[in-house]
Computed example of a mutant assay.
Amino acid sequence: MTALPMNRRDALRLMTAAAISGIGVLPDGAGAANGADQPGMLARRIPSNGESLPMIGLGTWQTFDVGTAPAERAPLEAVLKEFVALGGRLIDSSPMYGNSEIVAGDLTAALGLRQKLFIATKVWTSGKRAGIEQMEDSMGKLRADPIDLMQVHNLVDVSTHLATLREWKQIGRVRHIGVTHYAASAHDAVARVISGEPVDFIQINYSVGEREAERRLLPLARDRGVAVIINRPFAGGDMFRRLRSKPLPGWAAEIDCDSWAQLLLKFVVSHPAVTCAIPATARVEHLRDNMKAGMGRMPDEKMRARIAAEAA
Score class of each variant (00 low, 15 high):
residue 170 Q to W: 09
residue 57 G to L: 04
residue 69 A to M: 12
residue 248 L to Q: 06
residue 121 T to W: 07
residue 177 I to V: 12
residue 11 A to H: 09
residue 66 V to P: 08
residue 89 R to W: 03
residue 180 T to M: 06
residue 153 H to K: 04
residue 263 L to R: 04
residue 149 L to W: 02
residue 20 I to L: 15
residue 42 L to G: 11
residue 312 A to Y: 14
residue 255 I to V: 08
residue 130 A to W: 00
residue 116 K to S: 11
residue 207 S to E: 07
residue 175 R to L: 04
residue 287 L to Y: 12
residue 240 F to T: 10
residue 243 L to H: 06
residue 125 T to R: 04
residue 135 M to H: 01
residue 184 A to S: 13
residue 238 D to S: 15
residue 275 T to F: 08
residue 185 S to D: 09
residue 126 S to Y: 14
residue 227 A to E: 01
residue 158 V to A: 08
residue 297 R to D: 07
residue 153 H to D: 05
residue 267 F to G: 06
residue 240 F to I: 08
residue 109 A to W: 14
residue 50 G to W: 05
residue 25 V to P: 02
residue 227 A to Q: 00
residue 18 A to F: 03
residue 90 L to G: 00
residue 226 V to W: 10
residue 287 L to M: 11
residue 34 N to V: 08
residue 282 A to C: 11
residue 187 H to A: 03
residue 216 R to G: 15
residue 293 A to M: 06
residue 88 G to C: 13
residue 20 I to N: 14
residue 76 L to W: 00
residue 100 S to V: 10
residue 290 N to L: 07
residue 312 A to P: 04
residue 105 G to A: 10
residue 227 A to D: 03
residue 73 R to G: 00
residue 210 E to H: 06
residue 57 G to P: 01
residue 113 L to G: 02
residue 117 L to M: 09
residue 192 R to K: 12
residue 196 G to I: 07
residue 61 W to M: 11
residue 290 N to P: 01
residue 230 I to T: 01
residue 274 V to S: 06
residue 301 E to T: 13
residue 294 G to S: 13
residue 226 V to F: 15
residue 100 S to N: 03
residue 275 T to I: 14
residue 25 V to S: 05
residue 175 R to T: 06
residue 125 T to E: 08
residue 8 R to N: 11
residue 221 A to L: 04
residue 296 G to I: 05
residue 302 K to G: 14
residue 266 K to T: 06
residue 82 E to V: 00
residue 284 V to K: 05
residue 292 K to R: 15
residue 91 I to N: 02
residue 147 I to S: 04
residue 229 I to M: 09
residue 54 P to W: 01
residue 177 I to F: 13
residue 4 L to R: 15
residue 73 R to E: 05
residue 217 L to P: 01
residue 245 S to R: 13
residue 265 L to D: 06
residue 308 A to W: 05
residue 92 D to G: 14
residue 258 D to P: 10
residue 152 V to R: 02
residue 51 E to I: 02
residue 100 S to H: 05
residue 162 L to E: 02
residue 285 E to Y: 11
residue 205 N to T: 14
residue 285 E to L: 08
residue 38 Q to T: 03
residue 134 Q to D: 08
residue 46 I to H: 01
residue 63 T to Q: 12
residue 47 P to I: 00
residue 245 S to V: 03
residue 20 I to C: 14
residue 212 E to D: 14
residue 41 M to C: 12
residue 257 C to Q: 03
residue 74 A to M: 12
residue 197 E to T: 09
residue 182 Y to C: 10
residue 112 G to K: 13
residue 200 D to S: 10
residue 170 Q to C: 05
residue 127 G to K: 15
residue 164 T to L: 13
residue 171 I to Q: 12
residue 305 A to R: 14
residue 179 V to D: 02
residue 289 D to H: 12
residue 280 A to C: 09
residue 263 L to P: 02
residue 254 E to F: 10
